[in-house]
Structure formats: structure tokens, C-alpha cells
Design a protein around this nucleic acid. Sequence first.
DNA 1: CCCTGTTATGATATCGTTATCAGTAACATG
DNA 2: CATGTTACTGATAACGATATCATAACAGGG
Lengths: 340, 340
Amino acid sequence: MSTQRRQAPTIHDVAQHAGVSSMTASRVVNGYPHVRPAVREKVEEAIKALGYRPNSLARATRTGVSQIGMLYSNASSSNLSNYLMGAFRQASLSGCQLLIEPSQAHPTPAQAVQKLVDAGVGAVILPPPLCDDAAILEALEKAGVGAVSFATARPREGAPAVFIDDFEGARMMTQHLLDLGHVDIAFVRGDPAHSTAQLREKGFRETMAAAGLTVNEAYVADGGFSYRGGLDAARHLLGLRRRPSAIFAANDDMAAAISAVAHGLGLSIPADLSIAGFDDTSVATTVWPELTTIRQPIADMAASAVLLAMDLARPSAEPGGHVQAQLQLIQRASSAPPPA
Amino acid sequence: MSTQRRQAPTIHDVAQHAGVSSMTASRVVNGYPHVRPAVREKVEEAIKALGYRPNSLARATRTGVSQIGMLYSNASSSNLSNYLMGAFRQASLSGCQLLIEPSQAHPTPAQAVQKLVDAGVGAVILPPPLCDDAAILEALEKAGVGAVSFATARPREGAPAVFIDDFEGARMMTQHLLDLGHVDIAFVRGDPAHSTAQLREKGFRETMAAAGLTVNEAYVADGGFSYRGGLDAARHLLGLRRRPSAIFAANDDMAAAISAVAHGLGLSIPADLSIAGFDDTSVATTVWPELTTIRQPIADMAASAVLLAMDLARPSAEPGGHVQAQLQLIQRASSAPPPA
DNA sequence: CCCTGTTATGATATCGTTATCAGTAACATG
DNA sequence: CATGTTACTGATAACGATATCATAACAGGG
């Protein structure tokens, strides 16, 4: 019978409790100036006492923050949950409404963008490869809708973007394998059409060179970023007379495929072969042993993208900044020193 | 310079355009009765002409729909993006605010729930195994906060729940393999502590029995729902003197592991061995060949859960209903008739 | 003392929507 | 014809928050 639902306290309750007007309470909540320290403290106590939390929906109606459009493509599907999670969490906090649109649900990406524009969004977030699509960017500019590039390999000057340093990530992983003592390191590259793939390969090659090692070209295989391609690459690399002691794949899907082939050949991971991936998608912790990989803070990046998009949606839209996310080397069980 | 941002039309614009009051327009938008057909039509034309879309945030402030809490656990991580996507999309449409909380970020799940209660949510959505946790349910009832069970194997009477029929899913898949002509069908079961795992095994056994086949107990292996467990199960099953012609794994992770082992043994899939999974998680389309599996409409289920939770959060909360989602057999390249 | 300016606070209007209630018109009933 | 009883419609007031403007208090300069 104790089903009395606690009504969430409003800013008026806080104001009354503190003996001030709701406007003053609002100023305290938002950290605005022109409030005497004594009053500020009194309001803060009231907030604490009542457990007040601002209602971001109501706030948004008044401040008029418009809707933010967000596209997603199947390509990033393995990281999709993190992408969505980070974006939605931030949207909730900031009280903005997120319209998500799967770009593959439309004949062309441009139509997906158009749908969002028609829905009245104030800005859109574009993941690759849409963020590098000149036609889409032009259409958005024409409609007066700002765009935030997400995880683009080539941030545009003067346009807001959130991205990682693929080169640096590949460098970190290559260095990790070198530090373990590996010398015969193979690389499975992604789809060379993606600038991301090029940067990762460059990071690998330059780090090897910096260590004074020459890259054996037989040790560089194409994997096209897919599991299927990874299978083929692994069969080639592990069938060589002189096997590499470590394989660095440009993404986790390919690394998982390499793991499968290695298992099949009776190789023990990581005792006989070290494997490294990139992205830290769910497959990295699904396969056994779990993959050493490079994690991108996708959720944080998505949250940043939402904030940038909200800035962009304001009438006083400034060019907006760039946010570069920090990468992290996640060392798991798939990498170890080479066999003696 | 064409940066004029289109102000989204409001219901007042619609009303003015149609020559009625905004209240009448609101009634039309919400499908309420007591509007003359002629007027209704006029308003609908205005809506179309102006491209009006209701502002769900503003709507929510007035209707006072509170926040909905949503927990998630790593267990369902492979379907996490669909879970989040469906929930957030519905929350956006309904203008409710979703607070998501990773249960593994707290020492005990009960603390995660408490955090949501303290935040003032009107109801929470509980995925397994939390939805079957008596202590948590009791704590929620005490706090006067309703709970919606998500994907529970045992929907509680009188409590809202969204679920699938695991038995039926296993039956569908087993029947699919039988229809292809398989007789020697092996089964890799999940963690027997999960009621889901039990139901799936039961579905397999009863369908085999219904076809007049006795299940060879050597063909039933434990996989514990993990890739690692799937590897062991596959080594056992594929090492038998008389190999099964098809293996049905109780989830996709285990099926992927079976695929990896089969590749290693030089078996061709599906020519030499058919493999079937369950859940249709991302790994099902990552591995090659892609897995035949059972898809749960997780996104739709999550959307239903949000709607149930919103009903529950209303002061006039009714016991709330049960929603059983439809399963779908997804036939991909990993299953085919047995070798001649 | 007035004048001007700054800082702190509150009153009021407003965001886009819906709940509530009052009012009108039409129609049926006695 | 008087009198309900409906079906319809709109005016007004909320929801919870902030923007804007007005006001009060106090300071310093003339």
C-alpha cells in the first residue's frame, strides 16, 4: 500500500525551501553570477536537502534547444552500442532530442540526411564515410544545418569534428609488440579505400622503421576489414615457410579470423603466435583468448559530438572546435613475448 | 549566407493556418474525439502543409511523464545496441527521459537500482538476470517504483513483462535442420543456471522426439554460452568417430566457436557441417559463412518495455500487460542439407 | 542632496504543449 | 415551447524551467 510516488522536487520547491525566488535558485543551479555567496550557499543546501535534479526536458523547452540528427551506418555496427550510448546519455543530460536514422535504410545517404533536415533538426552528426561526402556536406550547408564529423580521418578546418589519431594507435600497438620482443611482425591491412586503413598501415610501417626494422612485404596482407578477408590473410601468413611471431590486424574482426585459423592449425595463442587487433569491439572479448587491441572511447566521443552539435544548433553558431580522443592500449591474453 | 534556420512550426501555427484554436489542433494531433470530421480534415491539411511535428519535450513537460530507469548488464552486450536503440527511439517519440545505468558498474545490482530510484525515476526496466532477482523486486516495490521485466524467461503474473518464447525458437531451428534432411543433430547447451538455456534445450529435445528421433546423448555438449565453452564443445563433437551433420548451438557466440574449430579441421561449412546459432547478435554476421540463427526483435521489445514502463509511471498505474515478441528464423549460409 | 551606475534580487512573460472547464450550438425529449 | 443532453470548440491555466525587464540597495561623484 506504500505506493505513494514521490513527486520530484522542482526549482520552486528549492526556492521556497531556501527562502528565495525561483529565479535566484535557477541562477545558482546554472552557476550564473550576481548571487551573494551567502544566498548561493543557502540554495545549495536546499538543493541537497531536497535532492533536487533539474528537469532537463522543461529546461530544453524554454531554452529552445532543437533536435539533433544522428546518422549511423552498418559499418560501425560493432561499436554501435557505444556510439548510441554515449550520444543518448549526453542528449538526456543536455535535454536535447536525438533523431537517429540508419543511413542504409535509404537508397542514398543523401536521402537519409534530407529526412533529418525535413524533420527540423538543428544540426547533424555524421559518422564515416558520410562525414567525408562532399555532396552531403554541401546539401547541409545549403539547408543551413550544421554538421559534426564523427571519427573522420580528415577533420575539416573550421568545421566541428571528433576524431582519433589512427596513426598514433597503430604506433602504440606496433611498439607494444616490439617491446614484447617481436621482430617478425605481420600486418593485415584494412580496406585501402578508407583513409583510416591507410593511416593505420602508415603507423605500423613508420614505427617498424623507427625501430630499425625493415618490413618484410610478404608479411603485409590485405584483409579488407572483414572476417572473411582476415581468414584469407591468415591462411597466407600462417602458411609461409617462415611464420611471423606476431600478427597485427587493422581491426578486431580480422584479428578474430586470424585467431580462428591459428586454432585450426593447432597453434597456441599467445605462446606460438601473438595477435593484436584494433577498435576493441565486442568480438575482441568474445573470442578466446581475448584480444589485445586499441580502444577508442567511442561513447565519450559521441557525447562530445552531441555537445558540438548543440553548439552548432544555436542561433549564435560559432565555427566549433575539434575534439581529439585519447586512445588506449588494452592488453589482453592474445599477446605475449615470442617463442624462445 | 543562406543560414536562416527554419523555426519548426508549433501547434499554434497549425491552428492559425487551419483557422481553429490550438486546443482543437491538439485534439486532432492526439486523435481525441469530439472534433467534427470537416474540422479534423482541415487541421490535418494544415499539419501536412506546414510539416508540423509535435515537440515531444514540451508535451512531456505538460503531461508530466517522469523519467524511466533502464539497467543493462554486460551479459546482453552483443545485443546491447539494439536494446538501447529501440529504447531510446521510443523514449524520444514519447518524450520521456531515459536514465541508463550499467549494473556492473556497481558492487551489487541492488545499488544500481537504488541509484535510479534516488534519481527519481517513475519506473525501471530490468533485463535478465535482474528481472528474476527477488531482493531487487522487493526493494522496488517498497520504494513504490514499478518494474518491467525485459526478456525474462519467467514473466511474473500481474507484472509487466516483455519476453520471447525460447522453447518455440529452439523448436523452429530444430525443425529447420530436420527439414533440410539432418538426422544426426548435435546440441550445444548454454549455462544451465539460466532458465533460457533450459527452455532452449527442451525445445530441441521435444522437437526431435516429435520427429520420431531419439537424441544421442553424446551429441549434447555443454558450452556455457561462451565462445570458450563453444570451442571445447566443438572439439568434443567434431572429434567423435561418427560426426554429427549439424550442430545447433544455444547462442551465436558458441556457434561462432564451432565454426572456428570446423574451419581448423578442414571442414567445409555448410557442405560438410551445418551450424545454427541463436540470438542473431553481431557475431552471427561477422564470421564466415554467416550464421543461420533465430532473431529476437530486441529493438521492438525494448520499445515495448519503455511504453509499459511509462504506463507504470503514471499515477493511475494499472498492473500492466505482457508483450510476447515474435521470433524469426534467419537462414544464412551456415546451414544446408547434409552431405549425401 | 541629486544623479548615475553597479550589483543583487524578484515579478512576469514565455517556451510548446495539454488539462480543465466553460460555453455554444444542435438535437432530442417531455 | 421549455428543457435537458449531447457533441463540439475555445479561453485559460498550468508543466518546470529560463529570459527579460523592473526594482531595490548601495556606492561614489558632483
